[in-house]
C-alpha cells in the first residue's frame, strides 16, 4: 500500500439520514483495500459515532451544518479526518468519562476510543474550520 493514499474525500450535510451512506461507502472502500472485517467494522462504527457527536453536540441538530470526511491510507494504517464548521468544542470531551451507574448516554466517545488506536482533536483547528478530529487505526489482522 502506498503512503498517504486518498481513500475517501467527501463533504456531506450533518444529517442523521446521511450516515448510512457514509458507513456503506467507508465499509466498501476499506474492504476493497484489503482491511479485515473486524478492523473495517471497528472503523465504520467509530466514524459513525464521531459524526453523531458532530451532529448532536457541534451542530446541535442544525441540519445545514457541513461535515468534511477524509480517509487516508499509509503503511497499512487508516487515518480518518472529520472537519466541521461549528463552534470549537473542548477537546477534553473526546476523553471517555468513567460511568459508575448505567446511563443511556456517553457511549459514543467510549466506542471511538476503544475501537481506534488514537482519537485526537487538532488544536488549533485549521483556519476557517470549527473542529478537526483525527482518528487512526492499524490493520492488524
Amino acid at each position: 500500500m502506498s503512503a498517504n493514499q486518498k481513500i475517501i474525500e467527501q463533504r456531506f450535510n450533518a444529517q442523521p439520514k446521511n450516515l448510512k451512506a457514509i458507513r456503506d461507502t467507508l465499509y466498501n472502500s476499506m474492504k476493497t483495500k484489503g482491511f479485515s472485517e473486524e478492523c473495517t467494522s471497528d472503523v465504520v462504527l467509530a466514524v459513525d459515532e464521531a459524526c453523531q457527536n458532530i451532529i448532536r453536540h457541534a451542530y446541535q441538530f442544525d441540519d445545514s451544518g457541513i461535515i468534511d470526511l477524509g480517509v487516508y491510507l499509509s503503511n497499512n494504517t487508516i487515518s480518518v479526518e472529520l472537519i466541521d464548521f461549528a463552534d470549537p468544542v473542548d477537546p477534553a470531551c473526546c476523553v471517555p468519562k468513567a460511568q459508575k451507574e448505567l446511563k443511556p448516554g456517553g457511549l459514543g466517545t467510549m466506542f471511538m476510543n476503544k475501537l481506534m488506536d488514537s482519537v485526537e482533536y487538532e488544536c488549533p483547528p485549521p483556519k476557517g474550520t470549527g473542529n478537526k478530529l483525527v482518528m487512526k487505526k492499524h490493520n492488524r489482522a
Binding site: 458507513r23 462504527l45 459513525d48 459515532e49 453523531q52 448505567l102 446511563k103 443511556p104 448516554g105 457511549l107 459514543g108 466506542f111
Partner: peptide, 16 residues
C-alpha cells in the same frame, strides 16, 4: 445488522 450508541441507549432506557 447494525446498532450504534444511540440504539444501545434506546435499549438501556427501555430496560430502566
Amino acid at each position: 445488522n447494525y446498532i450504534d450508541s444511540s440504539g444501545v441507549a434506546s435499549l438501556v432506557e427501555a430496560l430502566q
